[in-house]
Structure formats: C-alpha cells, structure tokens
Design a binder for these strands. Structure first.
Length: 111
DNA sequence: CGTGTGACACGTA
DNA sequence: TTACGTGCCACAC
C-alpha cells in the first residue's frame, strides 16, 4: 500500500456523483491496479474523509458495519434503493460516464 | 516467513 | 435470497 494509491482511491470516491454509487471492484478497475480488497482497506482506514457511502459491494449492499448510516445518507441523496440495498441498475455509474468519472478522479489528485 | 484476517468478487449449491 | 468455497492482495501477528 502506498500513499499514491490511497490518494487515487479517495479521489475516485469523491468523483462519484450524488445519487450514484460505485463498487469496490469498479474503483479498483478504474485505477487499473490493486483489487477490491485493497480499495476496501483504503476505505476502512481513510474513508471517513470522503463520501464512503457511495461505495458499495458488488451486490449493492453498503459497507460492513455502516449499513444503517449508509442507507440513510443514500436515501437522502435520492439514490435508488431496493429494500436494504442499492438498486445498481439505476445507481451504478453508467459505462458512458466512466471516462468522465476517471477524468474527475484524476483531476482531484492533481495529475 | 507462515498463518490469519478483511468496509471484496464470483461461481455453485 | 443466503451460505460456502476459492481467488485475490496487503497487513498484522
């Protein structure tokens, strides 16, 4: 784990637009390195500084141990929910917007 | 240096 | 849908 990776993960999370979400694996893929678990590691140690609730598991369930809090914040933003989990069909960042997302994430890192 | 663990993902049952 | 096993990468012991 290096600070650069941490910065990139946090930037990517900040670049997630309200009402939308991204999975751990999706972020890892966006950065082109590491894996879902590395992203999870970063979030568990530095996630408090970013909209962590917009990062959910691949099945739409929010972060372990923060389900209630995350669901509340997500509903506040109008994120499409399906019971106790996010409706990925409507909340997931569309492939068409991945490039834009990446651009915003990179811009935040200063690169 | 081996083993256990985790804010994960995916296939199978 | 949930439960398990396996793969994954990095960290704590």
């Amino acid at each position: 784990m290096n600070d650069e990776f941490v910065e990139q993960v946090l930037s990517a999370v900040e670049a997630i637009p309200p009402g939308k979400v991204a999975s751990y694996g999706e972020i890892a893929g966006l950065l082109g390195r590491g894996g879902p678990r590395q992203v999870g590691w970063v979030m568990s140690h530095h996630g408090s500084a970013v909209p962590w609730w917009r990062v959910v598991r691949a099945d739409g369930r929010p972060a372990r141990g923060h389900e209630a809090q995350a669901l509340r914040l997500l509903r506040d933003e109008g994120t499409p929910l399906r019971g106790d989990r996010v409706d990925l069909a409507g909340a997931r960042i569309a492939d068409d917007h991945l490039a834009e997302w990446r651009a915003n994430a990179v811009a935040s890192t200063g690169a």
